[in-house]
Design a protein around this nucleic acid. Structure first.
Lengths: 224, 224
DNA sequence: ATTAAAAATGAATGATATTCAGTTTTTATG
DNA sequence: CATAAAAACTGAATATCATTCATTTTTAAT
């Protein structure tokens, strides 16, 4: 239910910013960066062309704003999900699945990210950069726990692990978008973790445990 | 030394195509896609603006052509290097290093690749798609040999392996470009292969062998 | 009710991708 | 060598679209 009292100016501006970002997402998603027009974004947001430039500096900055919001949300849901899971392995698996799901659901927009110059000094001071760091650090904390528990091969450096983890998922999400189906996600994540985690020896007990874990996995596979 | 006899029309056209692609690479490399102008490409290639459109359909197609040439060359050098190496492990390590070197050397241009719509049916019939497949299949052949030799964990599916291999490198190349130095390549590749390959038990003999291998590695690390 | 500040507007501007009517170069033919 | 058809090339004109800014509308303060 909407608020009953009249909206303040601040609230209106905030609403409009949301409307503009939503419109931008939908246009970028449909057309990609090059064919997305600012006029179309303005139309869908229900504002004049010029109004966009009160909220973003230019078209490229529009992408930045869209990505910033995406990463902020992604980090929040990732951290919440990690907190909810028990055990480092379950946390890692959740993170991987969550990442795959979100990347695939927002593919067209994320594809535009490389257009934004990340080499400049400026980028390092940008909001987008800190948001990226914040998201990655959710993974880093879990990975560190995994290392101290001996779950990960200790010879592997953290940065290598991180690049492999996210790199493999990004690439795989891309091929999955075009070639395979969504339900390959779980199979892929299992393979990924299998490679990254040290193998545990299978004893009769761990066998039963792992079967139980698999059941639990299936149950929570697609929940936030 | 250039040919002595007068050039045929075909030769001139071929030369001009090369000149245009070279110009396009240099402009995209310097400015990125959005800020690269067709007029500037024409100027550097020494042709009129309109001439570009005799060779490519539009600006996006210019990117396609540039990428097509890049992948054709990449595949050729990759296959040659693989053929030159003895042993599946050495072949794999060469492929990884070669890929990292080439991706990092051509970063700005490769960044533009996502602009090209790979979701469409058209893409599947494009030259770029087959070139991509050809390149990937160089890896696939080596990976299959590795599996049959028991070097790779047999539980891992080929497509997962491939996504991890290329995904990890692509992502890592990106962070390396901005954060780390070139000589991290070898360390990264060693880590990557260590994770992907099944561990061999270390015996005194394999220990000596692996030390020799490491020396050989260092010697050929940066050669074609 | 009045007014200053903040937001919003949309027509005008500027940049640049693309087209195409006209020109030049090459090859084929006698 | 002369001629003509075909193939390449040219660059001024056009079309599209991001961006600006002088003007108008809305909001908050008194």
């Amino acid at each position: 239910m909407a608020k009953q009292y009249a909206k303040t100016r601040q609230e209106k501006v905030a609403d409009r910013e949301i409307a503009i970002l939503d419109a931008a997402v939908s246009v970028f998603d449909e057309k990609g960066y090059a064919k997305a027009s600012m006029a179309e974004i303005a139309r869908r947001a229900g504002v004049a062309d010029g109004t966009l430039y009160l909220y973003v500096k230019n078209k490229e900055d529009m992408v930045r704003s869209v990505l910033a919001r995406f990463y902020a949300q992604l980090t929040e849901t990732a951290q919440k999900g990690v907190d909810k899971r028990d055990g480092t392995k379950a946390k890692l698996k959740f993170l991987a699945r969550h990442h795959m799901r979100e990347v695939m659901a927002n593919w067209r927009v994320l594809e535009i990210a490389p257009l934004i110059d990340r080499s400049s000094e400026q980028y390092r001071q940008s909001e987008l950069y800190s948001l990226n760091r914040a998201y990655v650090s959710v993974f880093d904390r879990v990975a560190k726990a995994a290392i101290s528990e001996g779950l990960l091969r200790p010879e592997t450096e953290l940065w290598v692990l991180r690049d492999m983890f996210f790199g493999a998922m990004e690439y795989s999400a891309r091929t999955m978008m075009f070639v395979r189906r969504d339900d390959d996600i779980n199979g892929f994540v299992d393979n990924l973790l299998y490679l990254v985690l040290s193998q545990e020896k299978q004893t009769p007990e761990t066998d039963v445990l792992s079967r139980l874990e698999q059941i639990a996995d299936r149950l929570e596979a697609n929940s936030g």
